[in-house]
Design a protein around this nucleic acid. Structure first.
Lengths: 182, 182
DNA sequence: TCATAAGAAAACAGATCTGTACACCCCTGT
DNA sequence: ACAGGGGTGTACAGATCTGTTTTCTTATGA
């Protein structure tokens, strides 16, 4: 039973953390933007770091569900199914307030200062790898390719921050195709 | 004539910014760690953001020179020369205090709050692209591939933050080889 | 020798940060 | 009617942040 207030706080926090970064976003700002009293915020999350962890956990779960359902409801087979997540990058990178991969941003800011946050980002990345491996397996490709596709995926998210990367996405799609057919 | 004090400040600042992040690293810490008085720091750099810009500019120049000389003194030809920068990733990712790509970390933290910093990160990335294009051209490959290699490179740097990626590097090297020979 | 300039050290100003305390309000169940 | 829980709003504590000012020392060059 997710209380609506808690969810609303997580929504606001995720938006601000993603857009402006974790250290740059103060609790006061989240409180003001969400319209929820600070007392309530600290009743739901005992510290800022706990709030960050909750945001990341929820976001990770949501991303997984999205990718799962997208892969399940996909019509095509073979290479098409592997390319689908990469095609979706085009829309993701066009979103307003786009700022790369939330989990890598978190890992970068808390690499040596908060092991829990870093571990959560690591776990999300491992899930991404296993998801790609499952996809590859289902379509009859070597699961080894997951460790090539994963950096490509993350790299495109990273590159899109500083330049239009629709062309990079197109070329990567083609590269994956030739790679899988080789 | 780079004054030694200024260089020393840039060294300390770069180390701390890279390891702990830009917002998380205070001026006081840079001052204490470098042993240089705060007055002197603000004589050389008129603000923290100016210091960050100076750090990034110098780091970008250094990376370019390293890649250039490494590419020039390289003995092999053909695919080997393109693979070389990716092979070097193995050492880079093993460094203590490794924390991904400095420029992408900066872009993430200042995406919507400091256009100058974001622009500098973008420029560095464009240089990386043109460097790869030059390498490809010299070895007789299509320069289009640069936009595939660049995300791979950045993605590996990103992935290495949260998991051992020596295997990912190996598989990526093999993938590049098949990609260029196709 | 003495003037000048540069840097060290530390205090300070003012803002902002996380987190807590306190007083009030309002709604619901008994 | 009324007790109690949950939320609001605000003030506050204590730390830390950027950036300035002030005072003192020290080195150098005429």
């Amino acid at each position: 039973m997710p209380t609506p207030r808690r969810e609303h706080l997580l929504d606001t926090a995720e938006q601000l953390f993603y857009r402006d970064g974790f250290h740059a976003t103060g609790i006061d700002r989240i409180q003001a933007e969400s319209g929820v009293a600070k007392t309530t915020l600290y009743k739901h999350f005992q510290s800022k770091d706990a709030l960050i962890l909750a945001v990341l956990e929820r976001a990770s779960l949501r991303v997984r569900q999205e990718l799962e359902t997208q892969a399940r409801e996909q019509e095509g087979t073979g290479v098409k199914r592997i390319l689908a997540p990469f095609k979706d990058l085009r829309d993701i990178c066009e979103e307003s307030n786009f700022n790369g991969c939330l989990f890598n941003n978190a890992a970068a800011e808390f690499m040596y200062s908060n092991p829990d946050i870093r571990a959560l980002a690591a776990e999300h990345m491992r899930w991404m790898q296993s998801f790609l491996e499952r996809l590859l397996l289902e379509e009859g490709f070597s699961t080894d390719k997951a460790l090539v596709l994963l950096p490509m995926y993350e790299g495109l998210l990273t590159l899109a921050r500083v330049q239009d990367s629709s062309q990079a996405i197109d070329l990567t799609l083609a590269a994956i195709e030739t790679l899988l057919k080789a």
